[in-house]
Design a protein around this nucleic acid. Sequence first.
DNA 1: AAATCATGTTGACATTTGTCATTATTTTTC
DNA 2: GAAAAATAATGACAAATGTCAACATGATTT
Lengths: 231, 231
Amino acid sequence: MAIFTKGVHCGSCNLKMNLFCYLSDEQLDIINNDRYEVHFHKGEVIFKQGGPLTHIACLTSGLAKVYIEGHDKKNMILKVLKPTELVGGPGFTVDYRQHFSVSTLSESSACLIDIRAFEKMIKTNAEFSFAFIKYLNETTIALHDKLMNLTHKQMHGRIADTLLYLSKEIYRSSTFDTPLTRQDLADMSAMTKESAIRILKELKDDNIIDFNSSGFNILNEPGLIQISITG
Amino acid sequence: MAIFTKGVHCGSCNLKMNLFCYLSDEQLDIINNDRYEVHFHKGEVIFKQGGPLTHIACLTSGLAKVYIEGHDKKNMILKVLKPTELVGGPGFTVDYRQHFSVSTLSESSACLIDIRAFEKMIKTNAEFSFAFIKYLNETTIALHDKLMNLTHKQMHGRIADTLLYLSKEIYRSSTFDTPLTRQDLADMSAMTKESAIRILKELKDDNIIDFNSSGFNILNEPGLIQISITG
DNA sequence: AAATCATGTTGACATTTGTCATTATTTTTC
DNA sequence: GAAAAATAATGACAAATGTCAACATGATTT
């Protein structure tokens, strides 16, 4: 678990950017007063599944993965987190335990917000609460989408979805270098790493994508989208 | 879509049972004033995916299924709804469209609550809003669970999960008769109906379960749980 | 530079799962 | 009650996917 080495105020994380814009200056002060910036090395765990939910995190630099840990190292990566996204956890208001793990894919920083301060805002500011409900519902819609993609598409479609997600949502570029390993790509696509490698090779052979040690390049995005649709 | 044949006040749906217990009598009056009870025949659609989200429903009698419609009639049943459960929809606060369909599995009644009245309660009552957030988070936890089960378990484990869900959560009995078809059981377990039939037969041959035209009987629950775990 | 370790790749093979055709059974309709 | 339609069941087969073993590559340590 994250250790608060020092109480450094997090200046790089402008809370007003997120749903915190609904807070009054006074309320913002309350949250600002006990939030801390923590630096994480590559591969370190920010939140651990099963552990206590004491804080909400806002990734301020670097990249992280949010994943559910299953049996036999069979993990499922729910999403990739980039600055300056929030990550809470559905245990909030329920059992105050983490229902997924979050770990960094590169050197990263995160701003940790005390869950009690967050909870107070929810209970005292209805606009803020409403915005948070919207955030939760958007998460649910994304989860539904993932559920359908992973259960109703074959491997080619699932890998296409993963590549399009990285290209469009995370890196916003048709070429990108990524610290995600083949195992990570497999964990995002619900398959073994061997299968992921095979499908990637096929897509490369068909000139839909290209890749080497320095990253991926989507050569034929319409083709990749077609594969994503036909599954 | 549901047609409001008549403005019949819904007496059988005691809103105080659900999260509505956080409302003041005054607020409860506001919601009570424009809610209606509607009867649905077996197989009728209460909410249609893609359609407008104008109401929240509380099933007051009967049974319904909540499902995402995919391509080629490949549906995914998210949950079975029984009295007196609420069903909203993640489109609330987002795009005000339905992101899943709800249809009845038997003759049913539902109490429909205007989404604007509901939204007003969210915005004016922080305790209510907090309870609703808890409800949303519980839904998300259940979705995570489903995602893991469906992507990381083989068919035997998935069918076992479905049977245990029906037995424990829905019917609360080791024997139950259900209007769910084999296709429905398959749609809950992310497989084809032929596969569902085959697995059910295997479980029957192994004396883990029994079934006939009048319903299911779980003979060896520990065995079924073991299958669910080893997947 | 050698050694070690993590990650990536490939091939052979077994298993799982879906598809399709066919027949039985049940339910609904007339 | 007969006919039609929906649902259930079964078998043969093909396709998708995982498993395992082997080896390659690259990064890190010594």
